[in-house]
Computed example of a mutant assay.
Amino acid sequence: MAIAKAERLMNLALCLLGTRRALSKRELRDSIEAYVEAFQRGSAGSEESFNRMFERDKDDLRELGLVIETVENLDGDVGYLARRDSNRLPPVAFDPEEAAALGLAAKVWQQARLAGAASGALQKLRAAGLPEETGPESTHGALEPRIPVHESAFEPLMLACRDRRPVAFDYRKSNAVRPEPRQVEPWALECWRGHWYLAGFDRDRGAERVFRLSRITGKVRSRAGRFTAEVPDVVTVRETVASWAGEGGEGTARIRLRTGSGYPLRARALSVRELGDGWDELEIPYGRGLDAWLVEFGPDAVVLGPAELRADVVDRLRAVAKG
């Protein structure tokens, strides 16, 4: 819904809810700024244009659930109002499990700007009687969930995903030294193994792409206009990133890894064997994109096999060295 229309509907709803008597179309037209401006800009048929706009807005509010009454006054004019008792929501009630889930959700975003809004909402719910599970009997008190958000690109991208707004940013690939400009229609953000990723439509490449937020340099810039590509019903961010990292691969790769490093690799290892002299040998699943992930570990990881994986990693490292 466009911001201008949403604001107009909100103002109309507030007028109808705030009046003690039914208001005529003329009174509403003269009370709501958007209607006044539309009427003043109009030509001889501006009254008809206003009537069409008002009827659409009234129907939209009714579809949203607002109960609007039509009343005829003594002069025969038709007026409108929305009585508060007819539009009062039922009391909000939560069972202990739902209350615990809300409490956990409010703790998740402690490192993002959402923390204040989440905490404020939870305080209001508690003031209204939301049960709080505390004490030794609490089954959730020991849980302290966190979603780390260190990247400055997170918040503008989150808002762009919500508002369906194209963005532009500079992005450095794993095998590149210098970032490249990207124009993206953002679809969804998702956290996978401690890193945030953005899925969207890359306009320059004309295809779906996934971007790691830690590789975005500089500011995320908003772009005017609408999306040019259809947003899929299901955006598989994790599955895409997992395939790049070799998750679900049919083969295996042998990696020599420096002792005390590469914990994400060790977590996926099928077997680990000590080689001595500060090195271990790991066997890990091998799938498409594993070479890009291994490059990130720099000199701490050496590919022993298969040969094509070793060649791909060497090519990426040479590309970085040339840059």
Rank of each mutant, 00 (worst) to 15 (best):
P166S: 09
P166Q: 12
V220W: 11
T217G: 07
A245P: 00
R178I: 03
P186K: 06
K219Q: 14
W196Y: 08
G200F: 06
A176R: 15
S222V: 01
V167P: 01
P179D: 11
V210F: 02
V177C: 10
E208Q: 13
R162V: 12
F227A: 11
P148W: 07
H150R: 12
R215I: 03
G225N: 07
S174F: 14
C191F: 14
A188Y: 09
L213V: 06
L189I: 06
R203V: 10
K173M: 01
E185F: 01
A245Q: 15
V235E: 04
E250N: 04
G194W: 00
I147Q: 13
T252V: 07
G249L: 03
V235W: 05
A253M: 09
R182E: 01
V184G: 01
I216F: 01
P156V: 03
R209D: 09
M158Y: 13
A153D: 00
G206L: 07
T252H: 07
W196H: 11
P186S: 04
E155H: 08
S243H: 12
G251T: 10
A153Q: 00
V167T: 05
A153W: 00
I216H: 02
W192Y: 13
R256G: 06
V149W: 06
T252Q: 08
T228L: 10
D233I: 06
L257Q: 04
I147H: 02
A242R: 03
T240N: 14
V210P: 03
R223S: 09
A229Y: 02
G200E: 02
G194E: 07
D170G: 02
W196Q: 05
I216T: 10
P232N: 09
R164G: 07
E185L: 03
D233G: 15
V235Y: 04
L198N: 10
